[in-house]
């Protein structure tokens, strides 16, 4: 297992190099200039030129990239062009809400998807199964922003049970923090639950048709015990794959949900940074998101080995 982890970690280096170089090139190919955005109202060309020089934006691109890489190797992600704040600080401040939201959304999705997925598989082609399918189609088709606004309207405006927007850290103010994250977590969690439900249903169905299930039943085990001990463990691998891929997306890609609920997350940070052409900040966040994806895939691989020992021995 240790070798697997080491090998996978080693493979991340070229991926990170490619991702950062690609983003760097794309960003600089995009029209727009950070100094122009920052000083849109100033006509003083000299001021702009001085600032451009001070920030090193007048140097050739490969020099800028090399300088950025050099700093990165020393653990320095640079400073935001827009407000001079160290990128590490901006990112780490935004990471906590994003992680909390991702974990809560994942919890919401699992709490819904497991019972629904299993019941749908066991009661295949019954009205229950069809209701589950309807839920899944709804969850997959429903646009994030619309679901968010509907939830806000219902639970925030009409019933006034939950706050409409804003973020309170659950680690500091437990109850209020959780309340502030419920609606965004449900918004993200429902869509994910739909995907997981469908995946789980089909993999449970597949496992139910296996010989070892017939054997287990022949041994006289209760149906519940058969599902718990024999079916579920074998049906988990595809679900873990889906969850692993989604975790990265939840952390870096929950832009619309963060925007609607005014949550200070990583997704909004990177989009705002792109609009401001804040190169170091975009680079820093993208690097972080790439690392997040790689790590979540690594966790998935480790989990495979734990769920299915045959993978470990390969």
């Amino acid at each position: 297992m240790g070798r697997l982890v080491l090998r996978r970690l080693g493979a991340t280096v070229p991926v990170l190099l490619l991702v950062t170089a690609g983003v760097f090139a794309l960003l600089h190919l995009t029209p727009g200039d950070p100094i122009d955005v920052m000083m849109a109202e100033s006509v003083d060309a000299e001021v702009k030129e001085n600032l451009r020089r001070e920030l090193g934006l007048d140097r050739p691109l490969y020099v800028q990239y090399a300088a950025w890489m050099g700093r990165l190797l020393r653990g320095d992600l640079g400073r935001s062009i827009r407000n001079g704040e160290p990128v590490v600080e901006s990112v780490s401040r935004r990471l906590r809400p994003s992680l909390e939201l991702a974990l809560l959304a994942m919890t919401v999705s699992l709490v819904i998807a497991f019972p629904v997925g299993i019941v749908c598989a066991v009661r295949r082609n019954t009205p229950i199964d069809r209701a589950g399918a309807t839920f899944a189609v709804f969850g997959i088709c429903m646009p994030n922003f619309l679901l968010a606004l509907l939830l806000i309207f219902f639970f925030g405006v009409t019933l006034r049970w939950l706050p409409i927007s804003g973020y309170t850290d659950p680690l500091e103010e437990g109850w209020n923090g959780l309340r502030s994250l419920v609606l965004p977590a449900v918004t993200l969690g429902l869509a994910l639950a739909a995907v997981v439900t469908r995946t789980l249903r089909s993999s449970v169905l597949e496992a139910l048709a296996e010989d070892y299930v017939r054997t287990a039943r022949a041994k006289g085990l209760s149906e519940w015990r058969v599902i718990q001990a024999h079916v579920l463990k074998n049906a988990l691998i595809p679900v873990v794959t889906v969850l692993g891929l989604q975790l990265g997306t939840l952390i870096g890609g929950a832009v619309i949900t963060e925007y609607v609920f005014a949550l200070p997350g990583v997704g909004r940070l990177v989009v705002d940074a792109v609009f401001a052409r804040d190169y170091p900040l975009v680079q820093g966040v993208v690097l972080l998101i790439a690392v997040g994806f790689i790590l979540s895939n690594l966790i998935v691989d480790v989990l495979y080995g734990w769920i299915d020992p045959r993978i470990r021995s390969r």
Binding site: I152, G156, V157, I164, S165, Y259, A262, R268
Partner: peptide
């Protein structure tokens, strides 16, 4: 405080 979405701001 910042609330970027106009509809949500109004509802707030």
């Amino acid at each position: 405080r910042p609330i970027p979405d106009d509809t949500v701001k109004l509802q707030s």
